[in-house]
Write a protein that binds this DNA or RNA. Structure first.
Lengths: 328, 328
DNA sequence: CTGAAAGCGCTAACAG
DNA sequence: CTGTTAGCGCTTTCAG
């Protein structure tokens, strides 16, 4: 078997407790400490984290539950989370749910069994709605999406404002028939929808909305329909980066170009949005900030469990590119 | 404290051992099983995985160590790994190394302490070279890159062939001054370099190579220089998707277009490569396959520890797009 | 098929 | 400051 703390203790001529203290950086007479340290080196001892966790009741593990790590938003988020975890000497367990409530529940249960220190979680609306029924033994910080009001810490974008900014931007450039293609699974999509709808109505414009599963393929299918209608809108807004991508693909297939054939704008400043055609206008989200803030909320929650839940709302930034240029 | 197996046992009027047997799906008289199951439901019992691991010596955890999850190659890989892990009832701990050997060593050590079931690992060349010195208590499957010959299971692309295919493709279209921009940290970059070099020499062409850290910014800096030289090549090959992206950005800044100003080709069929300009010619890697294969090798290694190490080599697929169109 | 008992490897009281 | 002792929650002999 592998070498344990007991073997080290024997090799160093001390008690197991002393070895444990050296490991935990507690006060130990320098001479003993040295002896223990060389014994550790000689024996090649590696602490067994399962044992440590069982005894200490600290898992030093955080769970990251996202729909799909391949969504660039969550890719960047996960990196920010891992960085913060690394600095705090914690590990990250990665969970993809595919927006599938049963997979969500399953992973949430796993987190319980892991006795994780905390969870960063982007829930579907379906699961989010039940979030106050469930009772976790660990803090949960919601990201990108929120749950029942005032129940959980969360970090979200100011989605209504951002969405409205897109409408305002298009309106100012002379576009009037502005359609929106929205996701149908998250609180975020819904907020972007309301921001859009209100901004349209304020300007006396008629909202034109469609809804899709938030992935490029599904979005492309619907985008093709929208773009082929004879009353094609003169501008189209996508409620996230995946949907925007679907629209871009549909446009390419149909040989349509922005802004000549219609204006296009959306969310998430992914690399390709700056590279495609003459550039796509988007709302950039401070994704890394969102991740870091979530981890900060998590750590503060652990420090002060009784604190009232907090919502951190960050602002998006409009990146103007040529896809929404005024038509002359 | 939280409810343990003992509480369930009392509630069900059986011994802890019986509860454990029910959990492990061992033979238990149906009646008792039922009593235990309702007791579990009533008490809201959740097994403590740390305790289970400590006792059973199975961690059901696999480590995924990659340079940066934001590299789309590793994003997709991680998803494939997580899927396979999910199906096998295992968790995945995500580790980003930033191609930093000390962070690699640190995470490798962590994997030891976690007593992981196995590790999927994309090492830097530096660490890979020492991989036979290190001795792990768990199987390691190398992905995308390999280590000392015949020491570890690995799954890699046929990089030399793929690189040569790019040269061949460009040569067939009349390009002669074909430069290459290569990464400098991995065995993969080195193989792509040799594939390129040999293919060039076979055709009596002079290789022109530059080397960069494999990230877009570093690549863009060097690409700007290459593209500004008065003896600018008529074709430029990138050794991976990140470098290709840097080249694309540099070209955009300099107002250069492919294939008019020069041909461009590279690796990794990322979404943006099909969307930018009239499309970039790339070698597509079967990334998900690589991930699944790696997990398969890992599981087979666990089954049969003494089996000789295997290398799975997969082929890339040339996606021809307009960036390498023949100039008329 | 079930229960009693031991112990995985470690940390945390508690003495000294 | 250090050692002894107990036990975290579970699985796994070993008896019955």
């Amino acid at each position: 078997m592998s070498v344990g703390i007991k073997d080290v203790a024997v090799a160093a001529g001390v008690s197991p407790a002393t070895v444990s203290r050296v490991l935990a950086n507690h006060h130990v007479k320098p001479e003993l400490r040295e002896r223990v340290e060389t014994a550790i080196r000689l024996t090649g001892y590696r602490p067994n984290l399962s044992a440590r966790r069982l005894r200490s009741q600290h898992s030093n593990t955080i769970g990251l539950i996202v729909p799909d790590i391949r969504n660039p938003f969550f890719t960047t988020l996960s990196r920010a989370v891992e960085d913060a975890a690394y600095k705090a000497n914690m590990r990250v367990v990665l969970c993809n749910t595919d927006e599938n409530p049963s997979r969500e529940t399953m992973y949430l249960r796993l987190m319980q069994e892991e006795r994780v220190t905390g969870v960063i979680y982007a829930p579907t609306r379906e699961t989010a709605a039940q979030l106050d029924r469930l009772n976790f033994d660990f803090p949960v910080v919601l990201v990108d999406r929120y749950g029942p009001a005032g129940k959980h810490d969360s970090v979200v974008l100011d989605n209504r404002q951002a969405s409205a900014a897109l409408v305002e931007h298009l309106h100012a450039r002379g576009f009037r028939s502005i359609a929106g293609l929205f996701g149908n699974t998250s609180s975020t999509a819904r907020d972007r929808l309301s921001g859009y709808t209100e901004a349209m109505q304020e300007r006396g414009l008629k909202p034109r909305t469609d809804f899709v599963a938030p992935n490029p393929d599904a979005a492309a299918v619907v985008a093709r329909q929208i773009l082929s209608r004879k009353d094609r809108p003169d501008a189209l807004i996508a409620s996230n980066g995946l949907i925007l991508l679907g629209i871009a693909q549909a446009m390419q297939e149909l040989g349509l170009r922005a802004p000549d054939d219609l204006a296009v704008a959306g969310f998430d400043n992914e690399i390709w949005t700056g590279l495609i055609g003459s550039g796509l206008t988007v709302i950039e989200q401070p994704v890394a900030d969102i991740g870091h803030s979530a981890m900060r909320l998590l750590f503060e929650r652990i420090e002060t469990p009784e604190m009232a839940p907090r919502v951190v709302m960050l602002s998006g930034k409009l990146i103007e590119r040529n896809s929404t240029r005024r038509l002359s």
